[in-house]
Computed example of a mutant assay.
Amino acid sequence: MTAATGIGSMPGDDAAAVAEATRTVLDSLPDLPHLVELPGRGATASMTGRGLAVLAELGADLQPAGWRLTGGGAGVDHRRARSLLAQDLDVLEEQAQGLSGSFKIQVAGPWTLAATVERPRGDKLLADAGARRELAQALAEGVRDHVRDVRRRLPDVTRLVVQVDEPALAAVLDARVPTASGFGRHRTVHPPEASDALGWVLGAATEAGGEAWVHTCAAGTPLGLLRGAGARGLAVDLSLMTAADHDALGEALEAGDSVVLGIVPTTAAAAGPEAGERALVERVERWLDMLGIDPGTVSGQLLVSPACGLAGADVAWSRRALALSSDTARRLS
């Protein structure tokens, strides 16, 4: 049957909001709930901060320009990021007692981290081939430990999806990431290197007992590269897909992989008549018809979700967006 899920982020800026968001996700997305992320709490709870919290061995601290590796131990903000992740997992463990079936966690990918974190002496890790390799390997080891920890906390969950978020990958491959001065751009990373580093992280998730997916809400991300690196699921914003992307998603479904179609607007302001449940169902059915795919043959692989994270929504719309995703999936089933 068609299922619904969320991308990860939710609105809120304190511990009470974490508990509320966790309850909302568990109630609204029974088929594939996820660990909530609340970047409204600041840089230590952002996608980059959460990714660094998972990182093994390497330390980081927060500078005026953003996150930077220290070359030594974790700084106070890095420790804060790890503490927030542990607290969120504690809330999840308390509220999800007895949860079985499927669950999803998210982590920033190696190329998004390399494009947003600086080396100890400045400028992005992206500028240094050795540094970005070390980062990817440390992230892979951290993901392995993270998956084991979540499995320990949720012992009855039989399917643990690990969603690797790579919104910056397209910019990395196209040499669109600015240097520290802002006047230049970092050199392109060639696809084989990009695939290898991503593959280390996806492979670590799989080895630890997870099911590796990749999410991107950026246009131009090569979906074939993601699958070649080991992704067994692709989560995308359907409105950004090109004809080639549609073909790649169809190939993924035909190969037995999962596809998450981001179709629900992420804010109330972006919602229009096309955001109703019936219109969303028709949109998915038209997409499947365009690809020549019988809905009944992929119902167990196809999921629907908001187009991206919901951190920019208000609480009311975040609940509505998840409910629309769930209702749309139910009607498609």
Rank of each mutant, 00 (worst) to 15 (best):
A136G: 14
P178N: 08
A231T: 00
L253V: 00
G209A: 11
G203C: 05
V164D: 06
L160F: 11
D174K: 12
A175V: 10
A204S: 15
T158N: 04
L135T: 08
E251I: 13
G224V: 11
E141W: 05
D245A: 01
L234S: 03
G203W: 09
G230Y: 01
A171V: 07
L160S: 10
L223E: 11
A129M: 03
V147W: 06
D247R: 14
A197C: 13
A140E: 11
G130R: 06
D149M: 13
L198K: 05
R151S: 14
H246S: 03
H186R: 02
D128F: 01
G142C: 10
P167L: 08
T206H: 15
L160D: 07
D237N: 04
A244K: 06
F183V: 04
Q137I: 08
R185C: 04
T221S: 08
V164M: 07
D237W: 00
V189M: 03
G130D: 09
V143K: 08
L198T: 07
H246E: 12
L253R: 00
L126D: 04
A204K: 12
G209T: 04
A205S: 15
R151F: 14
R151A: 14
Q137A: 13
V150D: 08
A229F: 02
G250V: 02
T242H: 04
A170L: 12
R133V: 14
V164T: 09
T242M: 11
G256Q: 02
F183K: 05
A219S: 13
H186S: 01
V150P: 01
E193R: 05
V143N: 04
P192A: 01
R187K: 03
E134T: 15
A194N: 05
V143A: 05
T216W: 01
T158K: 09
L135G: 09
D257R: 02
G230C: 02
T216D: 01
E211R: 12
R227N: 05
A170S: 15
A175M: 08
A171M: 11
G256K: 06
L139A: 04
R133M: 13
G233V: 01
H246Q: 10
L126W: 07
R148Q: 14
E254M: 07
G184P: 05
L225Y: 11
R148N: 10
G182W: 07
H146P: 09
A229D: 03
A129C: 04
V147E: 01
T206K: 12
L126T: 05
G142Q: 07
L169D: 06
V189K: 08
G210N: 06
T179N: 14
T242R: 12
L226G: 02
A204N: 14
M241S: 08
R159D: 14
A205I: 13
T179D: 15
L238W: 15
D145G: 14
E134C: 11
R151D: 10
P167G: 10
D145Q: 15
L202H: 07
Q163E: 14
L223W: 01
E134H: 15
A204C: 09
G199I: 10
V161T: 15
R133A: 15
V201I: 13
D257F: 02
L160Q: 11
